[in-house]
Write a protein that binds this DNA or RNA. Structure first.
Lengths: 225, 225
DNA sequence: AAATTTATTAACTCAATGTTAAATCTCTGT
DNA sequence: ACAGAGATTTAACATTGAGTTAATAAATTT
């Protein structure tokens, strides 16, 4: 089983990431600061370490530096986590031996898929470029460019709209309940104003075209073509 | 659990692949020729069929053609297996509805990772999605997609209709009393207007076909085929 | 044939969803 | 830090169709 260690000083973030990764079948350890992180990493060598950069006592860069000197962690993937406005150069992070760089806030979907992509990439085969572009019906969905094209025509979607659309598109035909959608896109069970999803669905239908998203009354929504 | 059917005329290959897939936790059936393969596929619809092309009596292409005509196997992945020097066009194989093409000889690692990749590609991840799909008579009931197919033709059911149908289908032959149906589908003992179930049964018979649901007068209803 | 149970049909009801606009939040550039 | 733009959420109201009911017909049992 894949072991993941998350180090972040915000308990909320820890709980949020732990919950979502465990749901995907990963074994998750958490630490509240760099020092605790190092101790836990030593006691049970993780496959992936997710390091927040800004932390009291010992920041993420420090933890990374220490780990990268220890051959014990040669096969451990390190990824950084940081708030968008903290202006740390990704280059610096990667120079220190980090493998990836994830900016907060991040939805559970994106986070787990980044983790999975890292695992795939690191374990050799399979280019991660392949699954960044989805070709379905007369649509092209480019996850990297956050762009949908319909018959060659560009359609600009907002972030939430795009993620919601991707969720539906990735399993055509599957019916997603509102609860599922909230969990996967919003990353919370707390049900926000209960017309929120409807409004996003409406915008998607307006922008992408009305034919792709179908309502299954009493259950939820699905993508179909 | 993911069910794999391997069809090859060389017992050594069968044993080799079976051993390695079972070690990975798959449920493996084998067949020594195309005809046996088809029979086994019908008796227990597999998630993946691995078909050798060169076989006596009925070759892999034939088996694929027959299977692809049967909507029962709509959710079954078919992959071909052939010796490197047999110069069959991959195009031909894929045109027939095959999903992949593996050349012998193949290492266990590569083979199982190809199988896993297929599962990932075809559905979300490699785990038990298939439990969500019931294959019975000429019907396919996909719980995730909230969809019934009869001979490949989509039948859209409303929520209650679908739940009621699933209840009956999951134990073919079992007679459900109205009280039982209320408890399990409506989740209440309070009996609503006592013609409600009849009306739902009527709609099911109208949409799915009249032959599947039988009335046991004085007791209740059952699914039979 | 009377009684009981189930089938059929159509009308009705209300919760779920659609729609719109305004309020609030979040980013971006200065 | 601030303003403005755009994204997201909330709230209020409209619409729809699934699910229910009710009334009547047909089937089955006694």
């Amino acid at each position: 089983m894949t072991k993941i260690l998350i180090v972040d000083d915000e308990p909320d973030i820890l709980e949020f990431l732990q919950y979502n990764l465990e749901k995907e079948g990963f074994e998750v350890e958490t630490a509240i600061d760099g020092e605790e992180g190092l101790i836990k990493a030593h006691s049970k060598v993780p496959d992936i370490v997710v390091l927040d950069i800004m932390m009291p006592r010992m920041d993420g860069f420090e933890v990374c530096k220490v780990m990268r000197k220890d051959p014990k962690f040669d096969n451990t993937i390190i990824t950084f986590l940081t708030a968008k406005d903290e202006d740390f150069s990704q280059i610096a992070a990667l120079d220190l031996g980090g493998d990836d760089f994830i900016t907060k806030p991040v939805s559970p979907r994106v986070f787990t898929s980044r983790i999975k992509a890292l695992l795939r990439r690191h374990r050799g085969n399979e280019s991660n470029v392949q699954d960044q572009i989805i070709n379905i019906a007369d649509l092209v969905i480019d996850k990297e460019k956050v762009l949908v094209k319909r018959k060659g025509e560009k359609i600009e979607l907002a972030k939430k709209e795009f993620e919601l659309f991707c969720l539906l598109v990735e399993k055509p035909g599957k019916v997603y309940t509102r609860e599922e959608i909230f969990r996967k896109v919003w990353g919370t069970d707390v049900i926000v104003g209960n017309r929120t999803i409807d409004v996003h669905i409406r915008k998607l239908r307006e922008k992408v075209g009305p034919i792709y998203i179908k309502t299954i009354k009493g259950i939820g929504y699905k993508f179909e073509f």
